[in-house]
């Protein structure tokens, strides 16, 4: 098993390195590259316990290439834990995670990232001390996967003009020009979330895990975020898995949702159907009115 994964990652790395010579954007295989209906992400029977608590029990879900899927549920249902199991911060106690036909549970985080899984964090994780532009530049450099210590020592580690361009464009498309050279500590939460998103996007991920991206944003920023996500879906064809409590935003973004409660998948399907389900309403909405249709 491990052998299989390691060789294929190597192949990925070399192909990424080759591609780096030609064009910047083609470094990663484009999304949904005609593999039929095979799901991009497949979570099968994942179970995770910590301490005495069953954080996830036998959870399964699928995301097709280019598809945006919502993941909702009450606090403590296990949404972030599931993200952690997909992205590699946690390893499931049982079950498998398959990405693009390849089993990835057991792989470390950075290798999953190189396969094309990007993520943002619920509790924002910026590179403290680095400016907005630098944050994106690290990710951009990392996309090539050709950063080596010896290259730096020969003074060949500086970013190429194309990479600088790429980063500039991302800064512009996120509307972050004003704070491009501001350190992470001095930007607002909303700008920080956009930086996280941009950092993932410059790598052209095939799957993007978004953990409460609108949480803590003001209405201006929420609007900006929704616009960026629309562009991402349309132009990059990135598949997304979205955890979000703002149901307006979920409704605007997703084709279908999964509902987690107490670590179990209690429902799935189109948002409206799911929200009219009694179990979901009791667990998640309480007495809140139905979401806008």
């Amino acid at each position: 098993m491990t052998e299989v994964t390691s060789t294929s990652t190597q192949a990925k790395e070399t192909s990424a390195a080759d591609a780096a010579d030609s064009t910047a954007t083609a470094a990663r295989p484009s999304a949904g590259s005609g593999r039929g209906s095979r799901p991009l992400l497949e979570v099968r029977g994942v179970t995770k316990r910590f301490g005495g608590i069953q954080a996830l029990s036998n959870v399964s879900l699928e995301v097709a290439p280019g598809e945006t899927v919502g993941l909702i549920g009450p606090n403590g249902a296990g949404k972030t834990t599931l993200f952690d199991c997909v992205n590699g911060l946690m390893h499931p106690d049982a079950g498998t995670v398959i990405f693009d036909g390849q089993r990835i549970d057991g792989m470390p985080v950075y290798r999953r990232a190189r396969l094309g899984i990007g993520r943002t964090f619920q509790k924002i994780e910026l590179f403290a001390g680095a400016t907005v532009r630098e944050q994106l530049m690290v990710a951009e450099r990392e996309k090539r996967g050709d950063g080596r210590l010896w290259k730096d020592l020969l003074w060949r580690g500086a970013p190429s003009p194309e990479e600088v361009d790429e980063v500039d464009q991302m800064v512009k498309s996120l509307g972050l020009e004003d704070v491009a050279d501001t350190p992470a500590e001095a930007i607002s939460l909303g700008q920080g979330r956009l930086v996280e998103l941009g950092r993932a996007l410059v790598q052209r991920p095939r799957l993007l895990l978004l953990d409460e991206p609108s949480s803590g944003l003001d209405s201006n920023e929420t609007t900006a975020l929704a616009a960026v996500l629309t562009v991402v879906r349309r132009d990059f064809g990135t598949a997304m898995l979205l955890v979000e409590h703002d149901l307006d935003m979920v409704a605007a973004a997703v084709t279908r949702v999964y509902v987690l409660d107490f670590g179990r998948m209690i429902a799935s399907g189109p948002l409206d159907d799911v929200l009219s389900d009694d179990a979901v309403r009791a667990a998640y909405l309480g007495q809140a009115p139905l979401a806008p249709s």
Binding site: G73, N75, S215, H245, L247, Q287, A288
Partner: peptide, 10 residues
């Protein structure tokens, strides 16, 4: 921040 709709009500 980060609370599910039911919790917000409560």
């Amino acid at each position: 921040l980060g609370l599910a709709p039911r919790m917000v009500d409560e």
